[in-house]
Design a protein around this nucleic acid. Structure first.
Lengths: 296, 296
DNA sequence: TGTATTGATAAGGTTTTCTTATGATAAATC
DNA sequence: GATTTATCATAAGAAAACCTTATCAATACA
């Protein structure tokens, strides 16, 4: 590794051809510039031929000038990466639960179409894996349904995710017994969501565990298929339900008080969120909910 | 441009994850390493998260590590260019008169076949252009027929270039009058060479200007064609004549004393000749004359 | 609770880099 | 030919940067 000030002197000298003019330009004395070149030549061999009124580069001098150019390019790349100045360029790494992830997927594709400089790495995972992924610096952004209490993570309210009770289009549902007759279509977060919603709609019910499980699937996009075929009911977030093809043989039961899950956007607290991640997170929130995301 | 010692500390720290172990490896104190990182972070923002017993890089830290990598690659390229360590790789730039150039051309092609890492830039030019080309650093090696008296150039004896009097195969040449009957086929160095040779073979002759000029061509490879067809005689270097296809309708007149032009290899005196140029020059001399080239 | 490990920081010693002054050389001008 | 101007190299000393030593604070472990 070569002293950067020496290289700076050499570059200006190569351009201007005179020690005196180089010193002027750099705000140093001619003697300092002479010493810099002396150090470089001690290390690398003869770099230039001194002529009255003008220096000439040797091949070694030309090689060193090439190196200086390489260095400048590398520094530009570093500065670009550090500043993240262009918030519409670079990688976005996002890890989300399947429900909201399914809703965001087309929005992310739209963003990529609008800003071709963006590339998106998006993984669907349960809450626990989301936390790990962000904490371990594998993903810059994550969405979780429970606000984490971890000093290493920032959590911003991203959106509210209402839960829907979804039944076959032809079903009649007015009581807990109607649900028992239908049966339950489960998914990874199925029990937790059903418990939360149904304990509000049917207070004092016997619990979701007393209803026969008629199916299980861990792909959010596939949960409503058995419901549409009349095999049973399920409880899923509205965004996931809305992402399903319209005109299917399902309907939502609007009964009792609404239950809403808050979604939290998380990222590492110890360093600044990149400009592009800020931009994309804001766009997603805005396009999903129509509201402005309040990042800290 | 960032202080190289700071970068070195950062690189080792990123690898070993501890200030104390980094200091050990670099032969510095832990306090020095701490200060280096402090300087870098002052300039570039948080680069790492301090954990008990292990540090973790931020994205900015990772960007800086990428820069360090770029720096190391650039330095390797520079060292390779400076050392010219591999004398069988890189560009050879050579400028020669046509006569010897024609002889060297197949030898250069052979060398390239043997050492694919070599690339050859070879130009045919008269003496004066050879001197300019080397002096102006456009070509590293040059061949000239007159030893230059210029402190900027080194001149090594490369080869001796005997001159041949070439006549049509069917011609009878015993006197000056026989040459006058034939006529002279001229080329750019034709008059000078003919004067030198013929003043030795036919002392007191009337001079080459008294002989009718029957042709002129400035491509060395084409001079002997009109001679073969009986249009006249010429005087050219033996190497150029030997480069002509054998079995042609020409012959060499062996009369009187031999005349030999010395060929000088020239290159710039102010910096060392590259290893590959040394190698190639030696190979050419050896393959052309069977002798060892004495480079200074 | 006591001990060991680790990184940050203050103060001072050491090294490097800079400036000032001078000398040598070449070219231009009188 | 003598003098002046322009330019780079070098020596010496001043200023700045970098390093070490010593100490403190925080955390982990026995």
């Amino acid at each position: 590794m070569i002293n950067p000030q020496w290289l700076r002197s050499f570059m200006v000298l190569a351009e201007r051809g005179s020690f005196t003019r180089t010193a002027d330009q750099l705000g140093l004395t001619q003697a300092a510039v002479s010493q810099h070149i002396h150090h470089l030549e001690a290390q690398l061999g003869p770099l230039l031929i001194r002529r009255p009124r003008q220096v000439e580069l040797t091949p070694a001098g030309q090689a060193l000038l090439g190196y200086c150019d390489d260095m400048e390019q590398a520094e530009k790349r570093l500065n670009l990466r550090l500043s993240g100045a262009d918030d519409r360029q670079g990688e976005i790494s996002l890890i989300t639960p399947g429900s909201i992830g399914l809703s965001l997927y087309p929005l992310l594709l739209d963003l990529q179409a609008s800003y071709p400089g963006l590339s998106v790495r998006h993984r669907f995972a349960p809450d626990q894996d989301v936390l790990e992924g962000v904490r371990n610096n594998h993903f810059e952004l994550g969405l979780v349904t429970l606000k984490p209490d971890d000093p290493r993570l920032v959590a911003c309210h991203f959106a509210d995710e209402p839960l829907d009770l979804v039944v076959p289009a032809t079903a009649t549902v007015n009581s807990w017994e109607d649900l028992e007759s239908l049966g339950f279509i489960d998914h990874p977060d199925g029990h937790a969501m059903a418990s939360r919603l149904l304990s509000r709609v049917f207070p004092g019910n016997r619990g979701i565990r007393s209803i026969a499980c008629k199916g299980f699937v861990n792909q959010v996009g596939l949960i409503l298929e058995p419901v549409a075929r009349g095999f049973g009911f399920t409880v899923i977030p509205r965004y996931a339900r809305e992402a399903y093809a319209p005109g299917e043989a399902i309907r939502v039961v609007e009964m009792g008080p609404r239950v809403v899950d808050a979604l939290w956007l998380i990222y590492r607290a110890e360093w600044p969120l990149s400009a592009r991640a800020r931009f994309v997170a804001s766009e997603l929130a805005s396009r999903l909910t129509g509201e402005t995301l309040a990042l800290v």
